[in-house]
Design a binder for these strands. Structure first.
Length: 371
DNA sequence: TCTACTATCACATTTGAACTGA
DNA sequence: ATCAGTTCAAATGTGATAGTAG
């Protein structure tokens, strides 16, 4: 894992003799849009509401890409990675560890609706994952990303050259993540600072807030629409295909930053498929870099850290200790790692972690679902 | 009793079909 | 006939909170 001191990630492209041309000798860059917004949330401890039927993220993931081959097709995906192996609770105005994490829910990967698209398309404008939803319903049938409540996650972006979603699993991946996008999942907001931030920045939040109808005594608990209508809506939602363009105004600001370029550990990639899950494997041989799949992250320079009791003091997370914090926020793992791990027969990745509790997260598929 | 989750509310915003005019 | 721009109804998403479940 490499640490870079800014929000622009910079990756060396794998040089393939078969496909190499002038463009491939460049590098893929990914910039987090709304980095300032993410950081302001992160400084208070970002919380993401999750619901049974799926809830959008706010701030939502939006990135800018460069360094792609203009005429080559790419698929861009996102998934959620546990930031650590703890469960949290909100107590006395702060987050504290409430024990070990729950067993990992079914992992899903959300494919950007434009995928596959040529590099020129991806580089033309920022791409957002506004429509991606998070749910705590492990039986979800809508393809939403499944996460546990009261756990910490961070989004991870994957880019691969592919002409169709069905050939994705055979290609080399480049993986990116941003520490400031780490968040805690909740079913109801805990930190009032986060609530205020969301109301200030999220246009949808104004509707209810400014409506002036907060009195539940006036409310009629009967449904606004009949059960038949509601069921119909749910079916429609099930069939909804993502529209192309987003008209929601962007509040993002691209952050101009440095350009540290760091080669990462090697990943030998192989793949096979099950019904809905693909198997990506790698061997870790630091002497022999491949770059076929790599992940780069940026350390967050933000004061917020969850409170940890003495019981967990051996896993310090302090803003002054960027490296140790980073190893917790972003364990030195990779989705396409450790070929020998037996679980890979079932389509999981092995994540090497610093501490034993992380064993629950050691199996992590890249694709169990795409939407 | 406590904590976490779910359902429900009203309204601003988004979406896309329908319409209009060049 | 086609395209671009406009209008507007329906759909969507939002945070707060009472009720429920464990």
């Amino acid at each position: 894992m490499q640490h870079i001191s800014d929000s622009k990630l910079h990756l060396s492209m794998p040089r393939s003799p078969q496909t190499a041309d002038s463009y491939q000798q460049g590098c893929i860059r990914m910039t987090l849009e709304s980095a300032d917004l993410w950081k302001s949330f992160h400084s208070s401890g970002t919380e993401m509401i999750i619901t049974k039927h799926g809830r959008r993220m706010f701030p939502y993931c939006s990135i800018r890409l460069s360094g792609l081959q203009p005429f080559a097709n790419y698929v861009v995906m996102i998934d959620m990675v546990p930031a650590d192996s703890f469960k949290y609770r909100w107590k006395k105005e702060q987050w504290e560890v409430a024990g070990k994490s729950e067993p990992q829910p079914p992992c899903r990967t959300y494919m950007h609706p434009d995928s596959p698209a040529p590099g020129s398309h991806w580089m033309k404008q920022p791409l957002s994952f506004l429509r991606m939803k998070l749910t705590n319903n492990t039986l979800d049938q809508h393809g939403h990303i499944i996460v546990h409540s009261m756990h910490r996650y961070y989004p991870r972006f994957h880019i691969t050259q592919a002409d169709s979603p069905y050939t994705v699993r055979w290609g080399p991946f480049q993986t990116f993540s941003f520490p400031e996008t780490t968040f805690t999942t909740v079913t109801a907001y805990q930190n009032p600072k986060i609530t205020k931030l969301k109301i200030d920045h999220n246009p949808f939040a104004k509707g209810f807030r400014e409506g002036g109808t907060h009195s539940h005594s006036k409310r009629c608990r009967s449904n606004r629409s009949s059960p038949v209508k509601r069921a119909q809506l749910e079916r429609e939602d099930l069939c909804t295909s993502p529209p192309g363009l987003q008209r929601m105004p962007s509040i993002s600001q691209s952050v101009k930053v440095g350009k540290d370029e760091q080669p990462l550990k090697e990943h030998h990639l192989s793949a096979c498929s099950s019904e809905q899950e693909s198997v990506h494997t790698e061997t870790l041989e630091p002497q022999d870099y491949d770059y076929s799949c790599e992940e780069q992250m940026v350390p967050a320079s933000v004061p917020y850290q969850p409170y940890r009791s003495l019981e967990y003091a051996r896993y310090p997370l302090h803003s002054n200790e960027v490296d140790s914090a980073h190893s917790l926020l972003h364990p030195p793992h990779h989705p396409l790692s450790t070929a020998e791990h037996t679980s890979q027969q079932h389509g999981y990745y092995h994540y090497p972690h610093h501490h034993s509790q992380a064993g629950d997260w050691s199996q992590y598929p890249l694709f169990s679902y795409s939407c």
